[in-house]
């Protein structure tokens, strides 16, 4: 890998995210470990969205649906494991994280396939509104379905298990999330550099040319959308385990908006943009929240200024323009 300025910044970001909780752990400040875990999970969710939004140019305003589905998979499987009742067709629940992750990815991917298959028939502003509407559909379903807490949400009494790791120790759970984030980012890089990734980017840049060389943009986009949904779903499962709680708010359209905000704050289509954005977002939330309870107002103001005047996001600001848009 060539040591460009962007790669250097990426390296610093990755090391800093690991260093902060290590220092916090040594200093006996577990709160900062939780913050760093939150950054890692949100960054993973946004990395998933970045595949659709940054690489494929698909402005999905409904990724909270996949995030929340991942969360509910963790919550529902854990609650069945606790109560001993089968989930469906005699299949029992589980408190094993890796099974939960696979189920979360599979279910998010399946729902992503259904939503994508309909939404991708449209484009532009229709696509934005339709993905938003489908996410609202999942949201209202979760609110009105009483079996798993409805509006009140569902608690996970004990954090789910991972073989050989005490997951209730904050540092251990952070490391799990950190490793998954790095794997997710690596996967993103591999996908983007592959033939498929090239086709996905080409479909964003010039749909007609892609179709002319014999590639169907629809299939490429649908595949990208499903992969994107799966990564975000995995992040949702981790998020539920972090909070040991899942509620419809994970599915709300504010969550979808936040995920887009993370990408824009960091820099659209950049490998480490989501991580930079998530770190910046959580830092804002924490710093502004300490100064004023009206922090959302100032967050809105900052976001507005970034959109109007600093379009490359944080990575763009530090590393200069992307070589190709």
């Amino acid at each position: 890998m060539i040591l460009t300025r962007e790669n250097l910044i990426n390296l610093i970001l990755a090391v800093a995210l690991l260093a902060i909780p290590l220092i916090a752990n040594a200093a006996g400040q577990p709160f900062y470990i939780t913050l760093a875990t939150r950054v890692a999970i949100l960054a993973l969710a946004a990395t998933g969205l970045n595949l659709a939004l940054g690489v494929g140019g698909l402005v999905s305003f409904g990724h909270a649906a996949f995030f929340g589905i991942g969360g509910y998979v963790a919550g529902i499987l854990a609650s069945h494991s606790f109560s001993g009742e089968p989930v469906l067709f005699g299949l029992s629940g589980t408190n094993q994280m890796w099974i939960i992750w696979l189920v979360a990815m599979a279910l998010a991917g399946f729902v992503g396939l259904a939503i994508g298959a309909i939404s991708l028939r449209t484009s532009g502003v229709y696509f934005i509104m339709i993905t938003l509407a489908f996410a609202q559909m999942v949201y209202y379903f979760a609110v009105s379905w009483p079996a798993y807490g409805g509006e009140d949400g569902l608690s996970i009494l004990v954090r789910n298990q991972f073989p050989g790791v005490m997951t209730m120790v904050p540092m251990n759970f952070f490391l799990i999330c950190y490793v998954i984030l790095l794997v997710g980012i690596a996967l993103f890089a591999v996908i983007r550099a592959s033939r498929f990734g090239a086709a996905l980017q080409a479909a964003r840049q010039n749909e007609v040319r892609v179709a002319t060389v014999g590639i169907q943009p629809y299939r490429i986009r649908l595949t990208g959308f499903v992969l994107s949904a799966m990564i975000t779903g995995l992040a949702g499962a981790l998020f539920a385990d972090l909070n040991r709680f899942v509620s419809p708010s994970m599915l709300s359209w504010h969550m979808s908006g936040e995920l887009i905000v993370l990408i824009i704050l960091g820099g659209t289509g950049r490998l480490f943009g989501p991580l930079a954005g998530a770190a910046l977002y959580v830092a804002f939330e924490y710093a502004l929240g300490g100064i004023t309870e009206r922090w959302q107002f100032f967050l809105g103001l900052i976001l507005l200024l970034v959109v109007l005047f600093a379009r490359g996001g944080l990575v763009g600001l530090l590393a200069g323009k992307a070589k190709h848009g």
Binding site: V59, G124, I128, I264, Q296, G300, L301, L303, L304
Partner: peptide, 18 residues
């Protein structure tokens, strides 16, 4: 449209909190 969505999303945060 992405910029429009984000800027007006930011306006919602400001209007609601304001």
């Amino acid at each position: 449209h992405l910029d429009q969505v984000l800027a007006t999303f930011a306006l919602i945060l400001m209007f609601s909190e304001g």
